[in-house]
Simulated scan of single mutants.
Amino acid sequence: MTDTAAPTTTARHRHDAGPAVAILRGGTGEHVEDVIRVLVESGVRAIELTTNTPRWQDGIAWAVDRYGSGAAVGVGTVLEPRQLDEAAALGATFAVSPHTDPAIGERAHERGLGWYPGAATPTEIVTAWRHGARAVKVFPAAQLGGPAFLQQVLAPLDFVDVIPTGGIGVDDAADYLAAGAVAVGLGSPLVGDALRGGDLDGLRTRAERLVAALAR
C-alpha cells in the first residue's frame, strides 16, 4: 500500500459506534451473546470479538443480525489475512491486530473493513498510519505510560488518530480521551467475569459507569 501523507484537515475520526470499544476475549463461549446484549443496552456499541474467544464467529453473526447498524461489530487479534475473509462474510465492520502487518491492512481494505493495527513507539505509530490504518491501536497503553505517554506522543503526531488499549480501567478511560485519543479499548477491566462466569449485573454497572464518564 502506498504511504499516505499526514492529513491537513483538522477533522478527527471517531469510532462509528462511539468512544468506547469493548474487547471480548476468552471465556467458554457460553455467555457471548448475553455479554454483547448487556453492553449494547448499556450504551457500549462498539464490540470487538477476538479470534481466541470461543464462538467468536457466532458472536459476530448474532450481533450483526440483532443490532444491524445500531452497533459496530469487529474482529480482534487478527494475525492472518485469511481471518478477515471469515469476519467480513459474517458482517464485521472493523478489524484489530496487536501488531502492524501491511498484508492484513491490504486485505482489510479489500474487504471494506476499518483497520486498527497495534503499535507502541512513535515510529511504529506513524508506520501504521501511513500503511492506511483508520486509527492506530496504541498497545499496551497503560504499561507504556498511560495518558501522559499518549499526550507526549501526540504532541508531534497530532495528525494520527489513536485508540489506546491495554490495561485501561473504567475510571481512567476518560483521561485518555482528554490526552487526545479518539476512542478507548477496554477488555477485562470492563468485561470482568461476564464471559467466563456470567456476571452480567457487574458488567452492566461497569458499562453504564463507563458510558457516563466518557459523555462528560
Rank of each mutant, 00 (worst) to 15 (best):
R12D: 14
R206C: 05
P102K: 14
P54G: 00
I104P: 10
V211L: 09
G197F: 02
R14L: 15
L113V: 07
D193C: 06
T4G: 13
F159C: 08
A88E: 12
A141L: 00
A212Y: 08
A173V: 08
D3N: 15
V35A: 07
A181N: 05
L154Q: 10
T50N: 08
D85S: 11
I23S: 05
E110P: 00
A95I: 06
Y116T: 02
T121Q: 05
V75T: 13
Y176Q: 10
S97C: 15
F139N: 00
V32Q: 04
G114L: 13
T28E: 08
R14P: 03
A108G: 10
A213D: 07
G27T: 02
A88P: 09
N52R: 05
G180R: 08
E48V: 05
A63I: 05
D171P: 04
A174F: 06
V35N: 09
D3G: 15
G27S: 04
G74T: 11
T205N: 09
R206E: 04
E30T: 04
D58Q: 09
A135Y: 00
G59K: 09
E110G: 03
Q152F: 03
S69Y: 09
A87K: 13
A71Y: 12
P140V: 00
V73W: 00
A179D: 04
W129A: 03
A6H: 14
T123M: 01
A141C: 03
D172K: 05
A213V: 04
P140M: 01
A71C: 13
A6Q: 15
V78R: 06
Y176I: 02
V96S: 07
T123Y: 00
G59Q: 11
G114M: 10
A22C: 01
I168Y: 03
P140F: 02
E106N: 09
A181I: 12
G145C: 06
A88D: 12
G169R: 13
L113N: 03
E106D: 13
Q83C: 10
I36G: 10
A72F: 07
E41A: 13
P122M: 04
G166I: 10
L203P: 10
V153Q: 04
A181L: 08
